[in-house]
Computed example of a mutant assay.
Amino acid sequence: MIQIPLKKFDAVAGDVAIRSSQLDYLDFTQPYTESGDKLHSNLSRMVVVVWLFVALIITQSYTASFTSMLTAQRLEPTITNIEVLRNTNATVGY
C-alpha cells in the first residue's frame, strides 16, 4: 500500500483494509461481483447439492486412505518369534 503514493504501483487487487489515512491518495471501488448470489432454479440447486456430495465423498476417501497409510506402518509386529521374548525376559499375558 505504501508503494502506490510513490507511483511504483497503479492498483491493488484483493482484500485491502480501508483506513481513513488512505482516502487522501487512494480510490476504492465496489467488488466486481457480489457475494451471496442466490440460486434461482431448482436445477442449479440440485447441481450444487450433487457437487457438494461428490466433494464430501472425495474428501472422506482421501482422509481414510491417508490415515490408513499412516497407521498401517505402526501395525507391524516388533517381536517376530518366541525366542525374542525369551531373550528379553518379557512378560506375556494369556
Results as ranks from 00 to 15, higher is better:
E76A: 14
V12P: 00
A11Q: 06
T67W: 04
T88R: 15
R45I: 11
K38G: 05
T71W: 02
S41T: 15
V92T: 14
A17H: 05
L75C: 07
G93C: 14
Q3C: 11
I82R: 04
V92L: 15
F66Q: 15
A72L: 09
F9P: 02
D27L: 04
K7A: 10
L85H: 00
T91D: 14
L26P: 00
V16C: 10
T80I: 06
N81G: 02
V50H: 07
I58W: 04
N81H: 05
Q73Y: 07
L26D: 00
S41R: 12
K8I: 05
P31F: 01
S21Y: 10
K38I: 09
M46L: 12
R86A: 05
G14F: 08
A55Y: 06
S21R: 07
D24F: 06
N87S: 15
K38Q: 10
K7F: 14
S35D: 06
S65Y: 09
V48R: 13
V54F: 13
V48H: 10
V47C: 02
Q60M: 12
N89G: 14
L85Y: 03
K7Q: 08
W51D: 10
G93S: 13
D27Q: 04
S41Y: 08
Y25D: 04
A72H: 13
T29F: 11
Y62N: 04
M69L: 14
L56A: 15
L70S: 11
V92S: 10
D15L: 13
I79M: 00
R19F: 12
P5A: 11
D37L: 14
W51V: 13
P77N: 01
A13Q: 02
Q30P: 01
N42M: 08
N87M: 03
K7C: 10
A13W: 03
L39A: 15
S65T: 15
R86P: 00
I79L: 03
T63Y: 11
L70T: 08
V12E: 00
L85V: 12
S35L: 07
L52S: 15
V47I: 11
P31D: 02
V47M: 06
L39D: 07
I58N: 04
G36M: 05
S65P: 00
M1C: 04
L6Y: 09
S41W: 07
I2R: 11
D10E: 08
F9G: 09
Q60T: 06
L52D: 12
S68I: 12
N87V: 01
N89L: 11
T29G: 00
W51T: 07
E34D: 01
T88Y: 09
V12Y: 03
Q73S: 14
L52C: 14
S20F: 02
L26M: 09
L75T: 06
Y25V: 01
M1F: 02
V47F: 03
I18D: 02
M1P: 01
L26Q: 01
